[in-house]
Structure formats: structure tokens, C-alpha cells
Design a protein around this nucleic acid. Sequence first.
RNA 1: UCGGGCGUGGCCUAAUGGUUGAUGGCACCUGACUUUGAAUCAGGAGGGUGUAGGUUCGAGUCCUACCGUCCGAUCCA
Length: 570
Amino acid sequence: MKVEKTEEKEVSLNFIERIIEEHNANGRFGGRVHTRFPPEPNGYLHIGHAKAIYTSFTIAQRYGGKTNLRFDDTNPTTERTDFVNAIQKDIQWLGFQWEGEPKYASDYFQQLYDYAVQLIKQGQAYVDFSTAAQMDTMKKAGTASPYRNKPVEENLAWFEKMKNGELADGTCVLRLKIDMKSDNWLMRDPVIYRIKKETHHRTGDKWAIYPMYDWAHGLSDSIEGITHSLCSLEFEVHRPLYDWCLEQLKVYQSQQIEFSRMNVNYTVTSKRKLKELIDLEKVNGWDDPRMPTISGMRRRGYTPVAIKDFIARAGVSRRPQIIDLSNLEASVRNHLNQIAKRVMVVLDPIKVVITNYPEGQAEELTIENNPEDETAGTRQVKFSRHIYIEREDFMIDPPKPKKYYRLAPNKTVRLKGAYIIQCDDYVTDPETGEITELHCSYVPNSKSGEDTSGVKVKGTLHWVNQEDAVEVETRLYDRLFMDENPTGRKESYRDENNKKRKRPIDFKTFLNPDSLKVEKAYAEPYLKGATMEDHFQFMRKGYFVLDQDSTEDKMIFNRTVTLKDGWKRR
RNA sequence: UCGGGCGUGGCCUAAUGGUUGAUGGCACCUGACUUUGAAUCAGGAGGGUGUAGGUUCGAGUCCUACCGUCCGAUCCA
């Protein structure tokens, strides 16, 4: 029996948890779990980072551990304080809190310098005056630099001069002396310090040299007592170097573990490409609701709960994952369905006259705010002779009458929370042929909740009372790219020798021209009390959230995601 | 070219060598219900685990080769 099997089933561990349990069993870290999230403050966080954040924070939580936030700020050229702030805001918005104060690799610059001096003294690092091009050539050939075996004292002196700013940028670098013949190119005497006379966002002009990632990262982990340093797969080849540095210095040994980063189709997550979209004004900034950034998703109306649910469902593994957008949208809909207040908004209106409802008369109807949540309460909605319905909810000549539930001549529908109406006639503009008005009659004893009419209808339409309708702006978003893999396409061409070749297609070619549509809409007055914290379901239209661009007299709503559409046309 | 990683339904994922029932979610299809063609409920289709060998009483799990794919040679992180 299936039921029994389900009951027996245990929650399976992912591969990182297994490693941790192994460490806990053999006592490597004394049962401690301390992770870190190490963003570089040179851009905004995106969905891929959200997975890294989620993974590092939740795995520590699961084992009663802690997580540091550490800014990997070793390259002053690209790093800025405003990114530092935005990153902190995003992490907290997702619902995570790091241990203590935020940390910075720059906090350890002196320590990192001292460690470098130590390695020079151990004869394992040297100052190299070769040019970048020469170094590149030697790396490929696997040959040693002429500076490789200079005396320790000389290296010490030069490194000191580097630090003191006595040498111009690019004069020389400090390299590790490891193995110029290694199959792993990163071990062919990697550069660990370069001269950069630039102002750092935190240390100002104190330093003329800055450590490279491979030197700063592992040692920062070690200094902070990080047990499990989780990172993405592309750093796997760095692990031997990571381990080498800690071993040679005989310092605390953190364990780097790599997992695959998360990609979602129909989007891009490279910081460079996101920045390009902003610079070319294809989108309106890092927090444009079409961006896969955390701030963009926040503005779009995605919730932390939904994003975390999505990441949890995707899981963590070492297989490259390109997850279908529908998974993210499903998580978003799932959460919003539980919390969103229902409200009626007509996006593309057509006037309806209820011909047998007296002019000047009106009544208040009571409608529940969220059928999924009784505590959400009810609201009053006014009904009268003149209302709007959605233009697409009426057809003069429906294609498949039996499967068509909406309004058409002589057909009946229920108006949500109100009465059943029948369409008796329609008016068209003699010039354009466009339908301008519907004439309907309502069934008086069919009022919602006290219907004694016995009339059965298949369809229910949302509607808005004309008299007190509020005009709002809606921003309807769709995927930013039309191709599911905008950065991975290639095209054939012929070169100057008429030889067939392939080259990558510019990802911007695939931008969706209809990724944003701005529409006026009519909303029921209840919406006037909306704040940016509220999530709404515009009935039958999708989930919406108030945008920050809204003003006193103009409310703007972003469509977070459409409702699932079970109605297949034709 | 070299080095490394990864190949389980369309997309993720489980299976920790052990019963030909290979999990679960998303997507998809059908039906029920419905005052949201949503939600909910019930059901369904779709893979034999990249390929070929091998080890084993037994392989998605181990080994070898091949194929595919991704990553890696910044004074970036």
C-alpha cells in the first residue's frame, strides 16, 4: 500500500548535509556549523544569490549554527557603499539575519598582508616584475618566471615598497610559488597581490595594494572560523589553492563545498548583462520589476516566502540547474493565493446598462475579501444600473458555444457578488464597428447568497460600478526575454575567407518588446486604501501590488503574476 | 588541446549497491466541484536512469571507455 510507504519515508539529506553529518560524526569541527555569505559589493543581488543565501543560512540554522555576512571587497575599482546597503536590505527582506555585525574582507587587510609576508619568509611567495602578457605566456608554457628564485630579503623589500605605494600600478605583483607544471592552471604561481592606488570604499587610501580573491577568501573564512564555505561550482578548481594557502600557513582549515548555481530560463543573471540592460535603458534600474534581482522581484510583488519556497523545492545539488520559470510562478501564486485580498478591477472596460435596474437606485453588496482566509473579512461594493465589465468577457459570436462561459447575446452570467444578468442587446459604433455598450437585464431574485431564481449559469464575471469607480494605472509585465536561453544562442556566418563559422548572438536580440504594457483600469473604491505591503488579487486577472511610483492622485499597480489560465482558446 | 564537474520523464529532484512500484514537485491532460475557467478534490499520460562493456547473487548507485554538456589559462570575484 502506498500510504504505508509514505509513512515510512524519511526526509533525505542533500549532499551538503551529508558532508556535515560526516563531520559531526568524526568531530572535525566539534559539531559546529558556521557558514558565510560573501557577496562582492559591486552590484545588486539576484535570484542566483538568493539561492546561495538561502542555502548558507538555512543549512546553518538546521544544525544550530551561524552565518556571517562578509563583503568580499578586495577590488576598489568596482565596489561601492550603496551596493553594500542594498545587499543588506535584500538579505534581511528575504528573512535572514547574519551573525553580529557585517564583516568585510577589508577588515583583514593587515592580517592578510602579514600572512603574505610569512609566506615570503617561508620562500613560498615572490615579487614578479614580468608583464601580464609575459606571465600569461609563461603560464601556458609552464615555465618559471626569472623572478621566481630571488632571495627572500629582496622579495620582502619589494613587497614592502609595493605596500608603501612607492611603485606605480602594474609595476609588479606578489605571486605564490606553487607549481608551474600543475594541470590546474590556478596552481601555476597565482598572483595574490596587485598594486592599485585607488580609494577603497572603507579603507580609503590606506592601502596601495589589494589582495586577490584566492588569497583573501580562504583566509577570511579561516580568520572567522567558518566551518563550511559554500560556493558555486565554478570555484571547484580553486579548492586546491584554497586548501594550499591554509595548509602552508598552518591556520584553521575551513572546508569549501561547491554546489550548482541556480538559473531560471527566459532571463539573464550576469551582473554585467543586467547592468547593460540598465545602461541602455531597456529596463528602469536594478529594481525594475522585470529584473531577476531581489529588489526587482520585491517590487514586482514576489514575497520572501514564495522565493524561499521556490528555492527549497528546486533543491541543492551539483547538477547545473536551469529551472523553468513556471516553478517560480507556481510558488508565487501559491503564497499569494493564501494572502492576497480579492478585489475587482476592470482592465479593458466596456459599459453595461442594466436596463431593468432603476436609474438612480443603488445597493451595497457584501463580498468576502479572501475565500482562502476567513479572517480577511468582507467589504461593501456598490451596485447600480451602470457598470463596467471586461471587454474580453463579451463576444457577439462565441466560437464554441458549449464551452463558452462568458457573456454573449441571450446568454446569462453571474456578476461576482451580485446578480445574474442576461445580455439582450449591444450597441456598436457605426464608424468603427467597435462595441460600445451592452444592454442587459438582471434577475431580481438571483442576488448572491440569497438566490432563489433557480437560474444556472456557468460563468462568473468581475465588474465595477461606474459611479464610484477609481481610475488606476496597471503595469502588466511579461517575461523580459522571448528565448528561454538568451545568452546561449549562436548563429552561423561566413568569415573573410568564406569559411563557415559560429558566433554568439547578442542576448539583447531576444528582448521581449511586450515585457511591459501600461493600461488604465477601473477599480472598486476599496483599493484606495492600498499600501505597498498589500498583495491583491484582481479577480480573474492576476496578482497585483502597489508600485512605489504611485502618487496621491494616481495609483499604480504592478502585475506580479497572472492567474493560471485554465481556459484554452480554440 | 589539457584539467575538472555533471548526465534520472519537458524542468528540477529522490533513491546512501538489495524485492521490475525508479520518489516527489512544477508543467501537461481528464473529470468533479465552484458566485474567480483561480483555488480545491479525484484521476491520467509521460522515464527504465547518456551509450557500450565490466564487477557483483544483485547496479541509477561501483569500475573502464566513449558520447554529450558545463566550467576553468583576469594584476575579476
